[in-house]
Amino acid sequence: MTEVLQVILYGLVLGSIIVLGAIGLTLTYGILNFANFAHGDMMTLGAYFALFYRFGLGWPLSLSLVAAMISGAVAAVLIDKVVYRPLRSRGSITLLIASVGVALIIRNLIRFVWGPDNHYYRRGIQFPIRWMGLRIKPDHLWILGVALVLVILVHVFLRYTKIGKAMRAMADNMELAMVTGIATERIVVWTWAIGAALCVAAGFLLGLDTQLFPDMGWNLLLPIFAAVILGGIGSPYGAMAGGLIIGMTQELSTLFISAAYKPVVAFVIMIVILLVRPGGIFRTGGAVKL
């Protein structure tokens, strides 16, 4: 029983990281109608931004996170201006291919600047807290706490601010959003900024949980896509549920099969959803289209 609870804790931790990655991906997918393959590498870039603020400038870890989120938002808006915006009328396949290019550029830039080796936010070993037979790393509490706060902020933003409502409206029905008079290009900029800031936070938390290396975000991209599709494309609330489900399922699967197969679990879930419920489990999102 304790073993199961322990795995559920790991599932929550992984799930929170996937949730933060999935919210940004689902919004850009729904609003701009393309699958952004550079999202995982933006996570990595954000994690290294935080590393730079932490050790390059010697800032405290929490401040480094905030600074990295802002830097990631600025980077995403710039990438949109330079790469995606000129291609926006060319269709989703063109944008997808362009995002693969962006992904490769970011990843190799990271290798070039920081090298291929692992990096850590904290040196030394953290001793786990023992509680009811569970081993809880203090960092795990940090990860859950930061993810919870960010998800609540996203919820408040999407529900109660004008820009948040416009964002949801655009993810729902782009043409009607234009007919309604929403200044869509401005909202697109906000979408990139917020999606990237959350994705940077996901990268940071992933680095805090394990270590930083150039492929860290890319490796998590598949489960993030699975979460987005599970929750319905363009639905931020679906992405939250989807992220938790994928994270939890991946960790629970280690009770039965080798941990090496974790990504396969996400892949299988994604394929099954695409086959039986392409609109997502809640049937509220847009179906996958390329």
């Binding site: 729902d172 309604t180 509220t284």
Partner: peptide, 30 residues
């Protein structure tokens, strides 16, 4: 369209003319 909306011309399309996942009140607010 968004310039025309500012001048007071409003359009109700035939299909897909609501934001399905937004509440009724949010549709009106938008």
């Amino acid at each position: 369209p968004n310039r025309l909306v500012h001048q007071g011309m409003c359009f109700v399309p035939q299909n897909r003319n609501v934001f399905p996942r937004l509440t009724v009140e949010e549709n009106l607010q938008l």
